[in-house]
Simulated assay, not measured.
Amino acid sequence: MIMMDEIVLFNPGDSIGNFHDYHEAVQTAQIYQERHTESGHVVVVKSDNGAPSFDIFLAEQQLDNGQKNPSTSKRYTISKKL
């Protein structure tokens, strides 16, 4: 079975944090989720362009592909859902 990457759109300004180390990003996302249980699902995403960079977003902040203002959004690949 072949697994496809899930590409999503987020507004970079909505990021909870930006990290160059994947494990640090996951650890921070877990801590955030424990402290903000009412916030919903947290995702760690990898930027699709440039050097490896990982951001943390709330899943509910995901934008759909029909976004009216694509200049404010950026493509990411989901690395981990919490």
Rank of each mutant, 00 (worst) to 15 (best):
K46P: 02
F54G: 06
N49T: 03
Y76K: 08
D5A: 15
D64T: 08
I16H: 07
K80Q: 11
Y76G: 04
S53I: 02
P12V: 03
I56H: 01
F19N: 02
S71T: 14
S71M: 12
H36P: 00
N49R: 07
Q27L: 08
F57S: 00
D14I: 08
Y32E: 09
Q67T: 15
G50K: 01
E6M: 10
K46Y: 01
V26M: 03
K46M: 00
I2R: 14
S71C: 07
S39W: 07
Y22D: 12
R35A: 04
L58I: 14
L82F: 10
Q62P: 05
S79V: 05
S15P: 03
N69K: 15
E60H: 07
L82T: 13
N11R: 10
Q30P: 02
L9H: 10
D21K: 11
S39E: 11
I7T: 13
S73N: 03
Y76M: 06
Q30Y: 00
K80N: 13
Q61I: 08
E34P: 01
R75W: 01
I31D: 14
Y76F: 14
M1A: 15
L63P: 09
L58P: 07
A29G: 05
G50F: 02
N65L: 06
Q67C: 14
R35F: 06
F10D: 13
F57I: 02
I7L: 13
S79W: 01
R75P: 13
S47F: 02
D48F: 01
I31A: 10
M4R: 14
V44R: 00
L9R: 08
Y22E: 14
K68H: 15
R75E: 11
V44S: 02
G17S: 12
D21S: 12
I78Y: 00
N49W: 01
E34Y: 04
K46F: 01
E38H: 00
H41F: 06
D64R: 02
V45D: 01
I2E: 15
V8N: 10
Q62K: 12
Q30M: 10
G50A: 06
K68L: 15
I31M: 08
A29E: 04
V43I: 12
E60I: 11
A59S: 12
R35C: 07
S71R: 15
K68I: 10
R75V: 05
V45K: 00
V26G: 03
M4S: 15
V42K: 04
T72L: 07
E24M: 09
Q27G: 06
F19D: 07
Q27V: 02
S73P: 04
P12E: 12
I16W: 02
K80F: 13
K46R: 10
M4V: 15
L63D: 00
G66K: 13
V8P: 10
F54S: 05
